[in-house]
Design a protein around this nucleic acid. Sequence first.
DNA 1: CCAAAAGTGTTCTATGTACACCCATGC
DNA 2: GCATGGGTGTACATAGAACACTTTTGG
Lengths: 230, 230
Amino acid sequence: MNKPDKFTATEKLQHTLEIRLVIFTLKDNQLGVFLSPSTGPHPSDVWEIPGVPSNIEKSLEETATQYLTRTMGMEEAYLEQLYTYGDSDRHPDYPLVSVVYFALIPADASQQELRKRASLRCFPVNAVPGMVMDHKLILDYALRRLRYKLEYSAVGFELLPETFTLSELQNTYEIILGVNLDKRNFRRRILEAGIIESTPHRRSGEGRPAQLYRYRPDAIAEVKARRLFP
Amino acid sequence: MNKPDKFTATEKLQHTLEIRLVIFTLKDNQLGVFLSPSTGPHPSDVWEIPGVPSNIEKSLEETATQYLTRTMGMEEAYLEQLYTYGDSDRHPDYPLVSVVYFALIPADASQQELRKRASLRCFPVNAVPGMVMDHKLILDYALRRLRYKLEYSAVGFELLPETFTLSELQNTYEIILGVNLDKRNFRRRILEAGIIESTPHRRSGEGRPAQLYRYRPDAIAEVKARRLFP
DNA sequence: CCAAAAGTGTTCTATGTACACCCATGC
DNA sequence: GCATGGGTGTACATAGAACACTTTTGG
């Protein structure tokens, strides 16, 4: 992505336009983000938020979706536009506009071979390596938005497999928000919000088996203007 | 803005990039939005959200700010990025990416001559004329965001002159939100939020003179995650 | 029978909502 | 002195927060 010669082909008549994706997932009971090694002339351990040049044949969102499919094998992941970065001094060599999306990938769903081919690596969000340009700021902003979004809407289950236990869901919220939530209050509110429903199955393991839940496809995507957590 | 020949100069190697501004103001006790007549080959009474091509010398936000200064005479108006529209079928002739901002202009502040030069006209938001492409959808979204933002943060006074009475501020909220608010509750909450402070001046008119307030420049811009209204 | 995780209600506190009258000024 | 908008407090309802024990399974 940092190849000036490729991107300045238009002789600086216009901004260079690219799409970047902040891809979050759960990894080892932590919130993780996928990064790709920087291709520019940097000291070795510099990473960047993965992305692609804009494709004139496709809409911005199509390009983002297809990138997700190609690198994660996801057909239907949560995807939302984050912000468009267009400061003139972002890139040292040419004016660069980055339309940034953020995506949520279920915990078990990222397909190893695809990720490897795109040389993406998953880092815990509170232990990311050095990053190019303003990418650390972009990541920080994406995190804020994810946390904010989690409080007011109900995107938590987008990071979980199709069915999940309430404890797993609560864990997800706790990991992202970085706080402990009360079990009884959590259950009551998430159930009253009506966005998940129980399935006939249960999960066995250590301790008492847990009821499995799934997202209600008919539920409204955004719980309107009402804070869920904390 | 709808001159294909001008925008396809790069021979379709890239998307065409433009900045649009949804400029809100108060007019005749209604929420108004500035529109410009469509320059394209349309039947006469079609309008559009005003904008400019991206300028490679400037950041996106600089371009937006300068457009505001040029057309409204505003040095410091509220400006916020709304969304970046990049569907492939937006424009019939070429792929067009619009980075859209929304702006709030104080009631008395728009300078007639400048507006006229840019041929901008102010329409009440619930009586806008026909608009090109997806501009009506963009406007609707901007309105939703403005209302949402008003509930959780405190941008209301951006639509008022530097000093204002509490009744004027309440009026502004009622106009935008489209609901009536309780006077006592409104006053209590807006004052407890600590975003405005009284000035030594009062305004005379019909009835008892009213205390004038102003925005506290040192107040945090966003009242964090706490709903103010309704 | 013990360890480990699932599941379940009630009390208290804070926040939001509804509501009606007196005050200061200009004419 | 009266019309006009400015200004003020309290009681009630609702939502959120804090809190501990019983249940079901596997080993």
